[in-house]
Every structure is written in C-alpha cells, then in structure tokens.
Amino acid sequence: MIPLLFGPEARRKYGVFQPAIGQGSKGRGVVICDGLFDEAVCAHRALRFAAGSMAEARWSSLRFDYFGTGDSSGDTGDFTLAGALADAHDAVDELKASAGLASVYLLGLRLGGALAAQVAATRDDVRGLLLWDPLIEGEEVLARYDVSGPADESAMIEGFSLSPGLQDELRGLSVERTLAAYAGPLLMICTAANDGHRRLAAGHSHIDFREIEAPEAWSNTALGGMRPIPSAVVNELREWPG
C-alpha cells in the first residue's frame, strides 16, 4: 500500500496505490470508486481487502477519496457529483501513470458504480467495468436518508452535508441512461439485488450479472466498518473477466 496525493493543486485527492504482486507482465489495473457518506466509512475495510486480494491476482489498483470526502482536501460541503466525476477521471490518469498501463478497469461500489459507469462511457482507455451493489438511480440515496422535501436546504447525513445542489444532481443520476452509451465488458455483482438491478441486467445483454450471498460491505452498524468482509464478492472480482 502506497499512500499518495494526486490531482490538480486546487483539488488534491488522497489515494492508496496497490501495485500488483508478481513478476513478468504488468497485469491489469483497476480504479476503485467508493460510495458516499457513511457507506464509504463502512466499506473502507472491504475495499482495502479487495485491493490487497486483487493485487495477488496481478491487479494494480488505486483507491481514493473524492474531493471533500475522507482524507482528501476540501470540506464536506464541497462535494458534488460533477466534481467527483472529474476526480474519477484524475484517478484513471494517476493509475495509468503509477502502474505504467495504457488502459484500466473501473470498479465502483454503490454511488461509485454510477460514477465509474459515467467515466467508462466517455473514455476509450477503460477496458471494463465492475459494479458492486451499484445505485441505479440517484434518488435511492435521497430515499435511503429520507430526504424527501424540496432541494432548498442542506440535509445532514451521519455528519455529512447533503447540499441542495447535490440533491439536484442525485435526482438527475441514472445508471441505466449512462449504460446506454457503454457497450464494453461489464460485471455487476449484487449482494442486495433489487428490481432495478434485475431490470438493468435484463435490458443489457453484455452485463455479466451475478447475485451473491454475502454481507453488505457498505451498510451502517454502530460505529461503521464492522461488517464481515464479503470475501465471496472479492473472489469474483479478482478472477473477472477470467
């Protein structure tokens, strides 16, 4: 694990580069896009474990925090989806440079899945997309935190700020629309599949959809981050695309 800072001076991000283990070819690279708010805190252990396990299968990876979240610069109120999308693009460039790769994969957990899909749909140096319990619609975030009113005031979510602007961005977020513009390899793993996931898989024949019985890495408990690590999911990720 190599901690690093990357991105433009005005949007410095904290990331952890995990080089692939082993000799010979450079292997593959994967940028890991996290979820948001308490889900990111809870999923931290699982994503660290995933990065370590994938390194043994010759994956280099970069985990990172979006601007305004985690260990990255910026205040919580600075987080926007447009900004996070730019951060994910920066992370792709950083991993390609750090690992010496011409193209990479993207792995997105929850909201990170929606962002990863948007990045993959607009670049030609993304080899494949791995979605882990992805949000299908941004409205799911608002529903999960019971934010139902007009987007005219900030809501506080587990110590994080959900600004009116971010609420508007979430209302406009749709993975289904994004994937219409992406035809590359796609693995979607769900430990908590809903109708949205199944509908998405049914409508896109190129999605390799797998429902796996495993703990939800991202869901909250007393102080966060205490769920068992879903190693069954990680095993699927590290071996894909086979």
Binding site: D38, V41, D71, G159, L223, M226
Partner: peptide
C-alpha cells in the same frame, strides 16, 4: 482511531 473506523473518524470527525 475510534475502534476500527479509519483515520478520518466517524462522520469525518478527525478530519
């Protein structure tokens, strides 16, 4: 660290 919450702290308290 508070328990096993990483160095950002719960709700980014430590940051």
């Amino acid at each position: 660290n508070a328990g096993i919450v990483h160095k950002v702290g719960p709700g980014r308290l430590n940051v």
